[in-house]
């Protein structure tokens, strides 16, 4: 019995370590390159030597330049700001909708839910022109509103919440109603506190969506003051050259920052409603 446990642990460590290599190795080129002078990027690429992985002239100039020349300070702030506001609004709006779908029966529910599902199957690239017209007529073009408001309501997030709420026993709501609680109170005071894990994942989904968002910010804003990271990174690919070291430096930062965020957030997975036994 003990032996088996030790073996199990060993296997899981081994798997984890193999996975770490699979995840990190492809990124190694980007990490190394970001510390090289621009003309050295491809200098030692083939055949492989130790120089392929270790920069010979280590320089931090790419990191410095993206902040001093390309304004990445502002760009990171914008992306964070847009991401966090969207998460806050999105969690509220979409969990409310999911609450309605999960708890109530009402006329037109099936068709409305079907349409909600359809909304996340329509790729943005195809509705870009009509959406641009709508947003432009609302006067949002080139503002934070343009980046935030159109993506707050999100069919996928509603679906995610609904999958979770469907597991909550109806008896909770019925007894709360008997005690005279309003529906808002039930949603806000009972359901939301029970929903920490799903809220974290939903928040992540919304945040990652904004963090990676490219075409919409490109179309909807044009001033430097609203520039977000994916758009900013694509300016490193110029007509006749790609500024590889800066591109990789920026990309490494866009990877590290959310990873740190996750490091802090992941403890909520463990401390969520695990083992409270609410699930039926």
């Amino acid at each position: 019995m003990e032996n088996k446990k030790v073996m199990g642990k060993l296997v899981s460590y081994l798997l984890n370590i193999v996975l770490v290599f699979i995840v990190v190795l492809p990124l190694l080129f980007s990490i190394t390159s970001s510390f090289r002078p621009h003309e050295d990027i491809f200098k030692y690429i083939s055949p492989i030597t130790w120089k392929t992985f270790i920069p010979t002239d280590i320089t931090f100039s790419a990191y410095k330049d993206i902040f001093t020349e390309s304004g990445f300070g502002r760009i990171f702030f914008n992306t964070f700001f847009v991401g966090i506001v969207t998460v806050a609004l999105g969690l509220l709006v979409n969990s409310m909708a999911a609450f309605a779908f999960s708890v109530f029966s009402f006329r037109g529910k099936k068709i409305v839910f079907f349409i909600v599902l359809l909304t996340f199957m329509v790729p943005f690239e195809v509705i870009a022109v009509p959406l641009y017209k709508v947003v432009s007529s609302l006067g949002f073009i080139d503002s934070y509103s343009a980046l935030i408001i159109p993506v707050v309501a999100n069919g996928l997030v509603i679906f995610l919440y609904k999958q979770f709420f469907d597991d909550l026993p109806l008896s909770i709501f019925e007894s709360a109603r008997m005690d005279g609680a309003s529906w808002w109170r039930i949603y806000y005071g009972i359901v939301l506190p029970l929903s920490k894990p799903v809220t974290i994942t939903a928040g992540l989904l919304i945040f990652v969506g904004q963090w990676e968002s490219f075409l919409w910010p490109l179309l909807a804003t044009h001033s430097d003051q609203y520039r977000v990271i994916q758009v900013a990174m694509s300016t490193f690919s110029q007509e006749h050259a790609t500024i590889w070291n800066q591109l990789f430096a920026a990309s490494n930062l866009t990877i590290v920052v959310p990873a740190i965020l996750l490091l802090f957030l992941q403890k909520y997975f463990v401390n969520g409603i695990a083992n409270t036994g609410v699930k039926e």
Partner: peptide
């Protein structure tokens, strides 16, 4: 706009 996306824009 970035070179590669100017036309799309």
């Amino acid at each position: 706009y970035p070179f590669a996306d100017l036309f799309k824009q």
